[in-house]
């Protein structure tokens, strides 16, 4: 009998419930006030993000490539072919060297300006193609011909000396 009585006695409220008297609905409910405050916080964060871009652009400007870099021997790349190479600086940046015609060489960064996919030279089209979203760049200037890329491919100047191919930062100012 005593056991039964014990069994039927209403359960005690756990001590943590009395310590934190917050109902579940109260804790999980997101009111319109909270939502509006969250939007205010988001607005502040976005402004901060925009500020970070300005600070980064002012404090850490992009460094131009210094000096000439050897790529390969000129006879290694046939006319209409492409050669991939990398230049190690503060970051390793991949480039492509294109042998357009006799004594016509071009070098561009290999990262597509849309979403940094690796671009490649299409000999049959005479254009540089980004296979991810079908963006096309001019093989002559690196300008965008078609597709989603927002900017032209960064370009390097090619110097052929004694049968060897070198690249360096472009000397003349780029036309926008």
């Amino acid at each position: 009998m005593a056991e039964k009585e014990l069994h039927h006695r209403p359960e005690k409220i756990p001590s943590w419930k009395s310590d934190f008297p917050i109902e579940e609905e109260q804790a999980t409910h997101v009111g319109r006030r909270e939502f509006a405050k969250f939007l205010g916080l988001l607005s502040g964060t976005l402004a901060l993000g925009n500020g970070v871009i300005v600070i980064k652009a002012l404090a850490f400007p992009a460094k131009p490539l210094e000096g000439e870099h050897f790529v390969c021997n000129a006879d290694e790349v046939a006319v209409g072919k492409m050669f991939q190479f990398e230049i190690e600086g503060s970051k390793i940046i991949p480039y492509i060297l294109i042998h357009l015609e006799e004594n016509e060489w071009r070098a561009f960064e290999q990262k597509c300006t849309h979403l940094t996919c690796a671009v490649r030279y299409r000999e049959d089209l005479g254009k540089i193609e980004c296979p991810c979203h079908h963006g096309f760049f001019s093989a002559d200037t690196g300008e965008v011909l078609q597709g989603p890329p927002p900017r032209p491919l960064p370009r390097l100047e090619v110097v052929v000396r004694d049968g060897k191919v070198y690249v360096r930062e472009e000397q003349q100012e780029q036309t926008v």
């Binding site: 939007l39 205010g40 607005s43 502040g44 976005l46 402004a47 925009n50 500020g51 871009i53 300005v54 980064k56 652009a57 002012l58 400007p61 992009a62 300006t113 900017r151």
Partner: peptide, 25 residues
């Protein structure tokens, strides 16, 4: 635009964004 070395655009949008954040608060 910052990737294209267009710092003035980044600066102008930052000022605009900052003013909008103030308006939100």
């Amino acid at each position: 635009n910052a990737l294209q070395d267009n710092i003035y655009f980044a600066l102008t949008t930052f000022i605009g964004s900052f003013l909008l954040a103030l308006a939100s608060f």
